[in-house]
């Protein structure tokens, strides 16, 4: 009951947060140089037709009036239209967000699978090869740009070995995509039982997920290692040792106590990657939301940019709410 009240309060608090985010990003986007009218009509358009278009799109009105109009539309769920795709931004984003989420969800899952066990092992063993490997890995993953690693992986696994399909999108042109249920092509093909689509979408997913997984395992590894090291050194672990609890039980308790910090870093990475995976999206022609937003910025197409910001903000707020609920589940001290 208390939990429900808490969730309710948090969701209510989302409204002013969203308003603030829209306010800031609206003015920031308006500061971007570039005239949408020129972009749309081309360099040869007459001054008169440019004026007319600007007028029609409302760009001649005062900024505050424009903002009011935008907010008025957002409240009704209308994020405007992109002149590049000539489609409503909401529709575009609902097509592209699942692609990004599939990519970063699987990528982070892989990153956790690499970083977490390696971090725990490195925290336990103060010296030795595993510790050395973890140290170098953390350094390397932090130093390496993801798009560069993506290109290397493409060169090795596509160009040289040819194990993997061409890095163009989420599925082969020749293969019919499965019906959209979850938005993840791999899972949807699995649900549909379509082996061709599954194989093709899986093949396309491998390299970008590997890229994101290998890079983002670095911070997860570091965070896991340092927090587990700290809990292994804490008073309650020393007491558990004095009580003669088996080693594996003590280690489990130490890892359990470190989980909140690890969950925090994962959620921060997730929120960051919604927009931060854009270079990987571009390298693999993924057609995700980040790519869409960058196209918008480059072409002075403002509605997609703002729409992306709104979508990411809502998603981040949902993630942080989930994280808070996980804290509740993990640490009784937060349940006051």
């Amino acid at each position: 009951m208390r939990i429900l009240r808490y969730i309710g309060r948090r969701i209510l608090f989302v409204i002013p947060q969203l308003f603030g985010i829209i306010l800031v990003s609206f003015f920031l986007v308006k500061l971007i140089p570039g005239d949408p009218a020129v972009m749309m009509l081309g360099p040869t358009a007459s001054a008169k037709s440019l004026m007319e278009l600007r007028d029609r799109m409302g760009f001649t009105k005062p900024l505050l009036t424009q903002l009011m109009h935008y907010l008025h539309d957002v409240v009704r769920g209308d994020l405007g239209t992109s002149w590049q795709t000539t489609q409503p931004v909401t529709e575009d984003l609902f097509q592209r967000f699942p692609a990004t989420l599939e990519l970063i969800s699987f990528g982070l899952l892989l990153a956790i699978l690499i970083g977490f066990p390696l971090g725990v092992a490195a925290a336990r063993l103060k010296r030795g090869p595993i510790r050395k490997f973890a140290d170098y890995y953390g350094l390397l993953a932090g130093a390496m740009p993801d798009f560069w690693l993506a290109l290397v992986l493409i060169y090795v696994f596509y160009t040289t070995l040819n194990w993997i399909p061409a890095p163009l999108g989420r599925i082969d042109m020749a293969v019919l995509p499965p019906e959209i249920i979850t938005g993840s092509m791999v899972i949807d093909s699995l649900i549909a039982g379509d082996m061709d689509a599954l194989w093709s979408s899986f093949g396309h997913l491998v390299l970008p997920v590997l890229t994101l997984g290998l890079i983002n395992a670095g911070p997860i590894l570091k965070m896991t290692q340092s927090t587990v090291e700290r809990t292994l050194d804490s008073d309650f672990v020393r007491y558990a040792d004095m009580c003669g609890l088996p080693r594996r039980v003590v280690l489990r308790q130490a890892v359990r106590a470190a989980l909140p910090s690890i969950i925090t870093i994962v959620s921060v990475l997730y929120g960051f990657l919604i927009g931060g995976a854009v270079l990987v999206e571009i390298v693999f022609s993924w057609g995700g939301a980040g790519q869409y937003a960058v196209q918008g910025v480059l072409n002075a197409d403002l509605n997609p940019v703002l729409g992306f910001v709104v979508f990411s903000a809502v998603l981040s707020l949902i993630i942080y709410l989930l994280v808070d609920l996980l804290y509740f589940a993990l640490d009784p001290r937060t349940r006051a």
Binding site: D235, F236, C243, G244, P246, R247, A257
Partner: peptide, 25 residues
């Protein structure tokens, strides 16, 4: 392992600051 089977069973310890040394979770 042999030491752990003695500690907490045959030889035990009463500690001074239990709220810090008991497992908080």
């Amino acid at each position: 392992a042999a030491r752990r089977s003695v500690l907490g069973r045959e030889l035990t310890m009463v500690i001074p600051n239990p709220r810090a040394e008991l497992n908080p979770v």
